Simulated assay, not measured.
Amino acid sequence: MNQNLSSYRIFYTVANAGNISKAAKQLYISQPAISKSIQKLEETLGCKLFSRSSRGVILTEEGALIYTHVKEAFETLDIGEEKLRRSLELGMGHLKIGVSSTLCKSMLMPYLKAFIENNPHISISINCQSTNETLDLLDDNKVDIGLVGKPNNLRNIEFYPIAKIKDIFVAKPEYLKNLSERGIPKEKYLSNSTLMLLNKNNFSRQYINEYLRINHIDTSESIEITSLDLLTDFAKIGVGIACVIKNFVKTELENNELVEVPCDFKIPQREVGLVYRSNIKHSKALDEFISFCKTSHSENFKI
């Protein structure tokens, strides 16, 4: 475009008004300034845009042609401005969240349900990945916020804890009964069973690996499974002993579908929380979500 937007705005206003004097009043500029702008635009385009009449000015054939496109452009701008105005008034925005499928189902969903009810004009995108992958997406600005297990190195991110979780080993009662009948003492159950763990890239697996190593629990023959839900399901049908998060198998423990396996070492609780970049400007939608989660958490929001 050889002319700046203001020249076309003047042309557009004059064409609509059909009179330079009226256009000058609408634009709050002088008539000579308008005439000079139109003249410069005509010189650049190489044609006359207006012809004078007794009532003012009318578009030439060439002027009518360029007017069609200028009109469409300014109407598009007007639509854009209106959408922006409505977005600001309604609190519209887009929020990209990274979270594992397990934490999404068991922890994020209650927050999201209440948040969406209060902020229906904010659209949500969910990227279900592991904690490690979510942290990478956060680094690459591909998600705005994540729900993860607390990382060892916070780098340049903020971590706001919302819950504590506990890793335990579970099995079907009949599976443990079978081990007992074979004369295996309780403290040796883990070493003499089919052990089912999340895959090595999973943050939860990496967290318990050190405790398994210190206590000489061999994992070389363990079954690796990609999701906590599948671990739970396999344990429920008696495949072996699974390492799961106690918070997420409460129903199975209460119904005695699964029982906690006794072991002679303790795995400390760990924190789960929100992670977000501290060194970039946040969108309004992100700030709204962070504020909502912190307020909900401080009011003992049930998860």
Rank of each mutant, 00 (worst) to 15 (best):
L5Q: 14
L5N: 12
S6F: 13
S6K: 13
S6P: 00
S6E: 14
S7L: 01
S7T: 02
Y8C: 01
Y8E: 06
R9P: 00
I10K: 11
I10M: 06
I10F: 01
F11I: 06
Y12I: 04
A15E: 04
A17N: 05
I20F: 09
S21G: 09
A23L: 10
A24R: 07
Q26G: 00
Q26I: 10
Q26F: 09
L27R: 03
L27Q: 06
Y28F: 10
Q31Y: 04
Q31H: 05
P32G: 14
A33S: 15
A33K: 14
A33P: 00
I34D: 08
I34C: 07
S35C: 01
S35N: 08
S37R: 15
I38Y: 09
Q39G: 08
E42P: 06
T44G: 12
L45C: 04
K48M: 03
L49Q: 04
L49Y: 07
F50R: 11
S51I: 15
S51M: 13
S51Y: 15
S51H: 15
R52Q: 13
S53H: 02
S53P: 00
R55D: 09
R55S: 12
G56F: 10
G56V: 10
I58M: 08
L59D: 03
L59V: 04
E61Q: 09
E62N: 15
E62I: 00
A64R: 10
Y67D: 01
Y67E: 05
T68D: 11
T68A: 10
V70G: 02
V70T: 14
